[in-house]
Amino acid sequence: MGATTQHGAAGGGPPPCTARAAQLLRAHRRTPVSHCDRCLRSMSGFGTDDELHRLREDRMSKYDALRDHLRQRSGDVTYRLDDLADLVPGGLPPSAYRHPAWWANGDRSHLHSRSWGDAGYTAHPDLARGVVRFIPASRRPL
């Protein structure tokens, strides 16, 4: 039997993580973060860079419930931090209660910021009052 490499069997077979990744994709329709690009590309239907990018963007986040909740709203909405924590599995991190920078808008590298941005909102915290106002991204706050 040939030696196994990081990306598959010595005989050119599929990467060992491909079957597990495909199983997870079928079960959850999401991409596990730990799989490498080569492994993802080896799965049927995920061969191009555009397809791979869409697959990466579709990863599950603990902030998806917040995004989905905001997508069902229209206009300005204001929430207490504790109410937002109830929407997020595991709650909000301590920094969300202490640092206005946690609520920065347009930062695609942070899943929490991406959640309200993808819902079409910008976040405007008032941490002294313990609330966050979400305003449609199409207009600026007054």
Rank of each mutant, 00 (worst) to 15 (best):
D126P: 03
D76H: 13
R26F: 00
V131G: 12
D58R: 08
L52Y: 12
G8W: 01
D83R: 02
P125Y: 07
G2D: 00
P141Q: 02
R98N: 09
R133K: 08
C17N: 15
P125E: 11
P93D: 06
R59M: 02
G45E: 06
L55K: 01
K62H: 09
W116K: 12
D37K: 07
S113P: 03
G106E: 06
R80H: 12
L52V: 12
V33T: 07
S138T: 13
P15M: 02
A10R: 00
S109V: 01
D37E: 05
R139V: 06
R56C: 13
S74A: 15
M60P: 08
G130F: 09
A9D: 04
R29Q: 04
A128K: 13
G11E: 06
F46L: 07
D64H: 04
R54Y: 09
C36N: 10
P15N: 05
R73A: 11
R140S: 15
M1E: 04
V33N: 00
Q72E: 08
G91W: 09
W116G: 07
G75Q: 07
G12S: 02
F46W: 12
R54Q: 15
D37C: 11
W116H: 10
A9F: 03
D118Q: 06
G130W: 10
A22R: 06
L111Y: 12
Y121C: 12
P93K: 14
M43D: 04
R133E: 04
D86M: 08
P15S: 09
L87C: 02
P100W: 10
N105D: 11
A65N: 08
R129A: 14
D126L: 07
S138W: 04
A9C: 00
R38Q: 11
R129C: 04
D58K: 14
T4C: 03
R54T: 15
L84E: 11
A65P: 09
R80A: 14
R20P: 08
Y63L: 07
H124R: 03
M43I: 01
R114P: 03
A137M: 10
P141E: 06
L84T: 01
S44M: 00
